[in-house]
C-alpha cells in the first residue's frame, strides 16, 4: 500500500508555488503518477505531500510555433504526443522514443516532463531530447530559467531542480532542415520493456557534409549525449571508417553497469551494434 500522504491540487502556478514553499522537501509533483506511485509504494520516494498539477491550465500546452519550436507542457501525456502528426513528421526521433515508453495504457497518464524529471538513466525520451537540443523551462516563485537538457540531469534520479522549482515545459527547437531522426531501443522482450540500451540519432546536412548527433539511455548514470562520437564521425575517411570510429569512441565514452536487465559487456556490445546500425541508416537516408 501507499504510505500516508497529503494531497493538494492547485489551480494556478501561484497556488503551486505556495504549496511548494510550505512543504519544501516533503512536497513532490504529481502529474501522471506512473513512476511516482510505484516509488512511493516501494518506499523509495520519501516525500509525503503530493502536489497534483493536472488542474493548472498553463501546464497543459502542446503547441508548435514556427521558428521557436515545439512546446510540451508538464502535464502533456505521451498519448497526446503520439497522436500529433506534426511531431511524427517533424520530430520523428522524439515520436519514436515516446512510442517505446511503457504501454498504450500507461501513455494515457504518463507525461514527457515526468519522464525526464524522474531522471532514470533509462528514460527513453531523454536521448531524443538530447539530440534535438531541447531546453527545459523551469519556474519557481523567484522567476524562471531555461536550461539545456544536457545540463538537466545530474545523476541517477537526480536533476538540477531546486526546492520550489517546477518544470513548466520542454521546448524543442526546430530541428535542422531535412534532418532524419531515429530511436533504436534494445529490450529483453519484443513487447514492452525498459531499455537495456537506447540510442537516439539525428542526422542532417551541413552544406554537403553529413552531421550526426548521438545520445544514449541506460549506459551511464544519466542519459548521455556523446559529442566526441559525433565529432569522430565528422572527420575524414570512408563512410565505413567514419562509422567505425564513431562506434569506437561511443563505446569508450559509455560507462554501463551490470544489473538485472543486462550486463555491462552486453550493453557495451549493444552500444556498438546499435550505433553502427543507426549511423548506417543515417548515411543511407540523409
Amino acid at each position: 500500500m501507499l504510505p500516508k500522504l497529503e494531497y493538494s491540487s492547485p489551480k494556478t502556478l501561484e497556488e503551486l508555488f505556495e504549496v511548494l514553499e510550505k512543504y519544501q522537501e516533503k512536497a513532490k509533483i504529481l502529474a501522471g503518477g506512473t513512476d511516482l506511485l510505484v516509488s512511493l509504494r516501494d518506499r523509495v520516494e520519501k516525500a509525503r505531500h503530493l502536489v497534483d498539477i493536472k488542474k493548472i491550465k498553463e501546464l497543459d500546452r502542446l503547441e508548435y510555433r514556427k521558428g521557436e519550436g515545439l512546446i510540451i507542457g508538464a502535464t502533456v501525456t505521451l498519448r497526446r504526443i503520439l497522436e500529433s502528426q506534426l511531431i511524427r513528421e517533424k520530430y520523428p526521433v522524439l515520436w519514436e522514443a515516446v512510442k517505446t515508453i511503457g504501454d498504450v495504457i500507461l501513455k494515457n497518464r504518463a507525461t514527457l516532463v515526468g519522464n525526464i524529471c524522474n531522471a532514470s538513466p533509462a528514460a527513453d525520451s531523454a536521448p531524443a531530447l538530447l539530440v534535438l537540443e531541447a531546453n527545459v523551462r523551469i519556474v519557481s516563485k523567484e522567476g524562471s530559467r531555461e536550461v539545456p537538457i544536457d545540463k538537466f540531469f545530474t545523476g541517477v534520479k537526480k536533476t538540477i531542480l531546486r526546492s520550489g522549482e517546477v518544470v513548466k515545459e520542454v521546448v524543442v527547437p526546430e530541428p535542422p532542415s531535412n534532418s532524419f531522426g531515429r530511436y533504436l531501443k534494445m529490450m529483453r522482450v519484443w513487447s514492452e520493456d525498459l531499455a537495456i540500451v537506447g540510442v537516439a540519432g539525428l542526422g542532417y546536412r551541413e552544406g554537403r557534409e553529413l552531421r550526426v548527433r548521438l545520445a544514449y539511455s541506460s549506459v551511464a548514470p544519466t542519459p548521455l549525449r556523446i559529442r566526441e562520437a559525433e565529432e569522430a564521425f565528422t572527420r575524414d575517411g570512408t563512410m565505413e571508417e567514419r562509422i567505425e570510429r564513431a562506434v569506437q569512441v561511443a563505446s569508450q565514452r559509455v560507462s554501463p553497469i551490470s544489473d538485472v536487465r543486462g550486463s555491462a559487456e552486453y550493453r557495451l556490445n549493444l552500444v556498438k551494434v546499435l550505433t553502427r546500425r543507426l549511423l548506417k541508416q543515417m548515411v543511407e537516408v540523409v
Binding site: 491540487s9 501522471g32 503518477g33 506512473t34 506511485l37 503530493l50 497534483d52 493536472k54 495504457i105 497518464r109
Partner: peptide, 13 residues
C-alpha cells in the same frame, strides 16, 4: 473514456 491502470491513479484524482 480512456483506459488507466487504477493502481497508479489516486482516488482523490
Amino acid at each position: 473514456g480512456e483506459p488507466v491502470k487504477s493502481c497508479l491513479v489516486l482516488a482523490v484524482e
